[in-house]
Every structure is written in structure tokens, then in C-alpha cells.
Nucleic acid binder design. Structure first.
Lengths: 167, 167
DNA sequence: AAAAATATATGCTCGGAGCATATACATCAA
DNA sequence: TTGATGTATATGCTCCGAGCATATATTTTT
């Protein structure tokens, strides 16, 4: 099999996976777009600032502020003043936000698992090993790491290759 | 390695790959969003109708019509009446559109190749084999196939697993 | 031939996203 | 301490893509 063909197949698979991942996640979010990622990120990093969120989501500053406005209006998140830097906002999920976050992660997990079900256990292990190697090669900065892991279920990702690469 | 962790890693990798893929592709397109996919799809399927394009891009009808309006206004595509169905529009790329299409595919290819460079040749073969198996399991309808392959370089994808699955 | 379905086009409105700007706080220099 | 610069957040303004509802043309079905 020629390399260019392999690259094509991998690219198509990545698009397909990312599509279903985002579709499943967004279906449980209050609105389409980056809201689902914002919720899971805040859920994983309580006290996250708007600026870090902005970089993780690759949005403009005002876009991020408005997104947070909407999340707060929906009762999913709340603003606190950051203890260490009084300019910054510390974002946290409300109990309702936590529930939504769990629903998003569960939906994402279900979709992924069913897409991977065609692989045998050995194949899944092998695929995961190579995926981890690729992931380590991709992530360089902390901002990029937040971006890549924006829909991850962190409780399931102890010993994450992204963290390993940054450390 | 627990399955849930493997799924997490694979999901993150898919997001990361899809991100760079779309970023690289959109950088060569006249506008962000689905324009890059529209151009490569029309490039691969000359005579494509707006309705098929709509389904491949998961847009509304009016959104697709307006997108095509813009592509035509930019001189990248042209509308013809379809020979078999006089209701339908047959879309084709102009020479300028072909150039843009090639640039998009080349940028996508470059980004993918560099992301995959950390794998050895054997690992790449193995990863591609498993990716092809996953892809075959994912694609069911022809519309979905167009969607999955919306940024593929079709000339590099002879004997594509998606086509194999549909046949 | 009439009715239903399909493909495209367009007026209208909504809402998310960015730009420019304003304010508050932090940090560094003198 | 004070002043200057940089950083974090907020908001008025505008633009533009996206969907809804509707209209028209063509094909298919009855």
C-alpha cells in the first residue's frame, strides 16, 4: 500500500471520527459549536480563566466572553474572581453544568466505543499504542494540549500521553 | 492499557488530525468553513448537484446555494444545467478552481505527512491497515461516504476502502 | 392530466464572531 | 512610590453565514 494512500485513509478516518465525536458531544450541549468543549474543559480545570479557554477553543476574545455569558445565563457555569490574579475570571461549572458535562462525555464515549467495536482486542491495543505515539509527536505547547484534549474524559486518561509529552 | 483510555487517546488524536487537516485546507480556500470541502468535492465529482453537495457538507439547502453563489462569484466554480435532470445544477470547477483545489489537497497532504512522520514505515503500514478496517465499518450510505471523503485526494485513493464497502 | 415529490432560488431574520475600544489589575523600571 | 507597559476582561458595533418559509421549475407517480 502506497504511503499517500495510507495518509488519505487516515485523514478520512480522522475526519469521520471527529465528526461523530463532535456531533455526539454537541447533541448534549445547550448549543452547537464550541459550547460542548467549553463545558468539558471547565469541568476538568475548575478555575480556568477566559483567556486560557479562548486559546483552547481558538476563538476571539469577545467570542469567548459571549460564550461564557451564555453558559452563565443557562445556569451551567459561574464566574468567580481568580484568587491569584484579580484581573482574571475563574470559571466553574454549576451542579447543572456538571450534569451536562457528564452527559457530553458519556455520549462521546458511547460513539467512540461503537466506532471502535469492529477491532479485536489485540488490534485495539495496537491501534491505541500507535495513536499514543502520534499524539506525543503532535503536542508541543500547553495551549495546544488543552485544545487537543478539549473533549477528553480526563478521569479515564490517567497517564495521558499529552501530559507525558509536556512534562 | 484500559479500553476507555485507548478510546480517549484515539478520540484526541482524531480531533487533532481533523483540526490540522481543516486548518491546512481552509488556509488555501477563499473563505473559512466548508468552502474547502466543497471545492475538493466538485473537483472530484464534476457535474455534482447542489443537493448532493448539501448532503455531503451537512448544510441547509439555502446555505449550500449561497456557498455556491460565492464560489461562482470568486470565479472558482460554474453552474451548468444537468443534462439528465433539468431541475438540477451541474457544478464544475473553473481552471482557477482546479488550481485552488490542487493547492488545498497539497496543503492537506503535507500536514498529514508531517504528522505521520514519527511512525516508522512498518508502523505506518500497520496503522493504515487498522484505519482502513475502521473506515469500512463506519461508512454505510453514499451520502456519508461523500462526507467522509470530503477532503480526500481521490487520485491517491485508488481502491479506497470506502468505495469497497459501498460496492 | 392531475397530484405529489424533487431540485433550486430568494427574501427575511437570527445569532455567533471579530474589531475597536474601554476599564481594571499586574508587573517592571526608575 | 510612581509611572509605563503589558495582560485579562467587558461591551458597542457591524458583518456575514445559516436556517426558515416560500416560490418556481422539472420530474415522477397515479
Amino acid at each position: 500500500m502506497a504511503d499517500s494512500k495510507i495518509e488519505n485513509v487516515i485523514g478520512a478516518l480522522a475526519l469521520a471520527f471527529a465528526d461523530t465525536l463532535q456531533r455526539d458531544a454537541q447533541a448534549k450541549a445547550p448549543e452547537p459549536g464550541p459550547a460542548a468543549s467549553a463545558i468539558t474543559l471547565i469541568g476538568h480545570v475548575p478555575g480556568l480563566s477566559i483567556e486560557r479557554l479562548r486559546r483552547a477553543l481558538s476563538l476571539s476574545h469577545s467570542g469567548t466572553v459571549r460564550l461564557v455569558d451564555r453558559l452563565v445565563a443557562e445556569g451551567l457555569a459561574a464566574r468567580f474572581s481568580a484568587p491569584d490574579d484579580h484581573r482574571a475570571v475563574a470559571l466553574r461549572l454549576t451542579p447543572l453544568g456538571e450534569t451536562t458535562c457528564s452527559a457530553i462525555l458519556a455520549a462521546r464515549q458511547t460513539g467512540l466505543a461503537s466506532a471502535l467495536a469492529v477491532l479485536s482486542s489485540e488490534e485495539l491495543q495496537e491501534f491505541g499504542k500507535l495513536a499514543a505515539k502520534l499524539l506525543r509527536g503532535l503536542v508541543s505547547t500547553e495551549d495546544h494540549a488543552y485544545r487537543v484534549c478539549r473533549l477528553c474524559n480526563y478521569t479515564a486518561c490517567l497517564d495521558c500521553p499529552v501530559e507525558a509529552e509536556l512534562a
